[in-house]
Design a protein around this nucleic acid. Sequence first.
DNA 1: CTACCATCCTGGTTGC
DNA 2: TGCAACCAGGATGGTA
Length: 276
Amino acid sequence: MPELPEVETVRRGLEAKLTGGVVARVQRRRADLRAPLPRNLKHRLEGRRLERIDRRGKYLLFHFDTPTVLIVHLGMSGRFVLTAPPAPPPALHDHVIIEWRRGPVLTFNDVRRFGLMTLTRAHDLAAHPLLRGLGPEPLDSGFDGPALGAALRGRRTAIKAALLDQRVVAGIGNIYACEALFRARISPRRIADSVRGERAARLAAAIRTVLEAAIAAGGSSLRDYVQASGELGYFQHAFAVYGREGEVCPGCDCGGAVRRIVQGGRSTFYCPRVQR
DNA sequence: CTACCATCCTGGTTGC
DNA sequence: TGCAACCAGGATGGTA
């Protein structure tokens, strides 16, 4: 479900409500997510104070004192819900419940259990296997045409597939790959290696602007994605091509229709007339 | 390297 | 209305 804008929206919502809190109680109700939940989750977190929440790509990084870091990936259907204490009776697919000495109760709910939660030490963070190979953060100031072009150099795969590869750029998923390519007027089928120079600059700018616009809208709410506060993001109404097969190409007078193709088993939406 | 495939899991939607 | 097939925002590991 969640790509960078949704993860960032969750990060902001949780950080605002939870920073400074001390963990009072951890319940691990179901451990068989994408990777087994740490057996010592309870002992490592109880009594720890949350200092801040960072994000790297689609990963949330909860920094506690000790120093302990809780790494979370939401997978396709993972979400965090905040509720007023006391902890509510566990609902279906509530896998982890974190209570604090004061403040709201944090529940991790994940229907499909593709999510992941693990612990590490802060000083190992950059070298952690989950984070080590990630490409540049698209919202960092250093992310520009030359940086993107360098990451794509020599890749003979389609640019759409390359954007989904977290080693190329961190945080982009199927929706924002489609949307960024449309904004940059680049065909999703174009060989990644051929995206250089001015094209790479256009694509880097499109990635940045579409992600920033989505964050400003609170992310996209498809299916069951909601922000921690329970509000719905509304960027899904601003999609130019995603999910719009057959509709008139938006934003220009080309008269073409949005087409859906399958690349690597995933749906790609684009306008063949304006994206070359 | 690359492309392609299956896999993990559940639930909503679609089509008969 | 019932039921089965298909589809879904991710990541990984295997194969050719």
